[in-house]
């Protein structure tokens, strides 16, 4: 047992869990290969990882570093970046999640389904963004007053 652990690098349970994982996900992959559009599904699977790890993360990390850096150069208090960072992060999350309706990208299919257009969502999104930044500004002003 000790020899196994030294050679493999972890316990037999570890190996068993990984083999089980590969077998089960492998059988799902075989089903996808049998069905229509396996290449598109694979592209979206890998694309989701690349989009997160190589695009989304570097973008928000870079934005955060430049914002924090600018404030540090102005000798702002360490937590002051949050007055901007938090509403910006929440707004960015809403845009990321609701991209199809905010940009009206899915309007044709939505009209087929519901008979409605998507004209209202951009304005609603902008109002929520305004409320987030406005609320943050208000809290900032109140905290300064004290």
């Amino acid at each position: 047992m000790k020899g196994f652990r030294a050679a493999y690098g972890a316990s037999p349970l570890h190996l068993l869990a990984l083999l089980g994982c590969l077998a089960l996900s492998g059988s799902a992959v075989l089903r996808v290969l049998d069905g229509p559009a396996p290449v598109r599904i694979a592209v979206w699977f890998l694309g989701a990882v690349v989009a997160h790890d190589v695009v989304l993360y570097p973008l928000y990390a870079l934005a955060d570093r430049s914002l924090s850096g600018a404030l540090r150069r102005r000798r702002a208090a360490p937590g002051s970046v949050n007055w901007v960072r938090i509403p910006a992060l929440l707004s960015g999350l809403l845009l990321l999640v609701f991209w199809p309706v905010v940009t009206q990208h899915s309007e044709p299919a939505f009209r087929t389904a519901s008979g409605l257009d998507q004209d209202v969502y951009l304005a609603r999104f902008l109002l929520i963004v305004a409320a987030l930044f406005g609320g943050s500004a208000l809290l900032f002003a109140v905290s300064r007053r004290r």
């Binding site: 996900s25 996808v32 069905g35 229509p36 598109r40 199809p100 899915s106």
Partner: peptide, 21 residues
């Protein structure tokens, strides 16, 4: 949920097998 089928494959099929992985 937002009627955007930009992925170009059957949603049910992709989402179902993706769930098993």
């Amino acid at each position: 949920t937002q009627y955007d089928y930009v992925f170009g494959f059957d949603f049910y099929t992709g989402h179902y097998y993706g769930a098993w992985v």
